[in-house]
Each structure stands twice: as structure tokens, then as C-alpha cells.
Design a protein around this nucleic acid. Structure first.
Lengths: 158, 158
DNA sequence: TAAGATTGATACTTCAATCTTT
DNA sequence: AAAGATTGAAGTATCAATCTTA
């Protein structure tokens, strides 16, 4: 890729440098705030919350492992380990898939639905406090567009 | 805090929801891209790169542990573990502080300076490819302002 | 007692290797 | 051989406990 070569010799402008520093600090701290709050109030790491939230939206609260991993953009390995843990907590169950004996289906249990319901409001409060209450409506739109632009750029390595 | 109570019963608007999803995906993937590239090309986790980069900017490439941890907004424990590892790699050294025998001073070694110099261009290329080449100049300014606004909101819990 | 720093335990992520079924 | 999924090892993060010096 030619752009890659160009980028190698390029430097960041002062504007880019200060933006990168501010962005990195802000996103790191938001991540930490979310994780800390979720962990303190509900004993759920954010990554696991996202897994359960995805299941909640699925028909019958069920999804195949691979499908779930792809939806969340995480590795199968990671999902497998996480599922072990969530199963141990009783929030999730693994069922065999009758149509393909290689496949497994993860299913949110009633306890899982409850845990999610209890964690939800606090999590949203964290988001509002740390993100949305700090931004104007226009900034929220800008952040959306910026994020879409950033996202499209990723994951395109050979 | 009253805002906290208000936030608890509040829901995210559709605009906020899609923004949060896009933002979370984009920031996660950027983090992963940075870590992967740094690890692949230079065997340095991003967190360790940041520690060394901070030392590089310090007078004589030296800082006290506490000072360094505060500058980076990380815990002393985390810095201590990281310093163990970096010392093992020969990129950093621990010296006693003559003026306060409780204190330790971390110092970037010549090998550390070299490792940083080798990693730098690739790391900047990653940032350019995944972030700056995707944004207009105006979006870079917007992202800066948004990040500053977000950052101010954090770390104010009791 | 508090400040500076380290330690150990536990938990999460990543990577490569493996196993089974298609 | 490829797809679906799991496993184990190694690395990093977090938290609470500890140790030493001020």
C-alpha cells in the first residue's frame, strides 16, 4: 500500500498531537469509568455486559457462538472464555445445536435477564454523566460522524 | 448528587444510542489496531510505549514512580508491574532517590531510547491510517473539543 | 499516621494449538 | 481440508494487603 509508505515518513501536526492526546485520555478514562461502575454496582465487566446485551436483543435470547462473536467483533476464543465465566455465574447457558453438531448455542438465562435489567439504569447513568451530559447536541452528531469515519478505516490490513 | 438521580431514570435517545454504538466500536477498534501494530512490529504493548514516551520527554529521561504514574493517570501498582517488565527487557532502570529513601526513580536506558525510536514511525503511521487520514481538518478540531469536554467530566466520583 | 512503592492473588485478553464434525 | 468451538499458556490489569521511610 502506498499510503503506508507515505505515512511512515510523516509527522503529526501540532493540532493532531494535541487531539490524539486529548482523545486517548478521554476514551481511556471513559472506558475505565464504565468498567468500574459496572463492576462496582453489578459485578459485570463491560465486555460481558455487551455479550449479554446482544443476547437480549436476539430472538429467544439465543445465538450461535460464531454468530455472536462476529456481531460483537470479538474472537471466538474470547467469547468461549467469557461464556465459561458467565455460565458459572448462571447468567448464560450453552445448548447443543441439533442442526449442526459442531455448533453451540448460547442462551441468556432468566437470572441473566434480571442481572442485565438491574445493571442497565446505572450503566446508562454512567454514559450520560460521563459522555452525553458533557456534549451539545451538535457535538453528539459530530462524534457520531467522526466515529463512523474512523470505523470504516479499520480492519483492512492484509 | 442530584444529576445522578435524574440520570438513573433517563433513557438514551435514538441519536445517543447510535452515537454510543459507533463511538464504542470505533474507539475499541482503534485501540486494538494500535496495540496489534505496536506488538507486531516492536513487541511493545501500547501502555508500555506510553510510559517510555513520557520518560523520553522528561529531563535526563528520569522520573519518580509516583510522578510518572500521576502524569500517565495510571495506578502505582500498574506502573510498578510495568516497570518490572520493562526493566527485564532492559529498556528502563530503577535508581534510588538520594533525597528520599522511600522514592524510586525510573530511567529510560539507551536501549529504551532506541526501541522507542524504532517503534515511533510505525506507531505514527498507524495513527494516521486509522484516525487522521479518515478525518477532515474540521473533524480533528471537533474531536479535540469533544475529548476535552469528555475528559473534564471524569474522575469526579466521591 | 501518611507517603512512596511493591507484592500477590485473581481475572481478563491474546495467541497458537487442538479437537470434532462437516 | 475447512468450519465451529474449546483449551492452555503467557501477558497485562486491578484490587487489597504489605512494607519501608518520612
Amino acid at each position: 500500500m502506498n499510503a503506508k509508505v507515505e505515512n511512515k515518513s510523516r509527522r503529526l501536526t501540532a493540532e493532531e498531537q494535541r487531539t490524539w492526546r486529548a482523545y486517548h485520555l478521554a476514551s481511556t478514562r471513559l472506558q475505565e469509568a464504565i468498567d468500574r461502575d459496572l463492576q462496582r454496582h453489578s459485578k459485570i465487566p463491560h465486555a460481558y455486559y455487551l455479550i449479554m446485551a446482544m443476547l437480549l436483543e436476539a430472538p429467544k435470547h439465543r445465538m450461535r457462538m460464531t454468530e455472536l462473536a462476529e456481531s460483537l467483533l470479538i474472537s471466538q476464543s474470547r467469547l468461549s472464555h467469557a461464556t465459561d465465566r458467565l455460565q458459572g455465574l448462571g447468567w448464560v447457558r450453552r445448548d447443543a445445536d441439533p442442526s449442526d453438531r459442531r455448533a453451540n448455542v448460547v442462551c441468556l438465562t432468566d437470572a441473566g435477564v434480571r442481572a442485565l435489567a438491574e445493571a442497565g439504569p446505572g450503566h446508562i447513568a454512567t454514559l450520560v454523566e460521563n459522555l452525553f451530559s458533557r456534549l451539545t447536541e451538535e457535538q453528539v452528531r459530530q462524534l457520531h460522524d467522526i466515529s463512523i469515519a474512523m470505523f470504516g478505516a479499520l480492519g483492512q490490513e492484509p
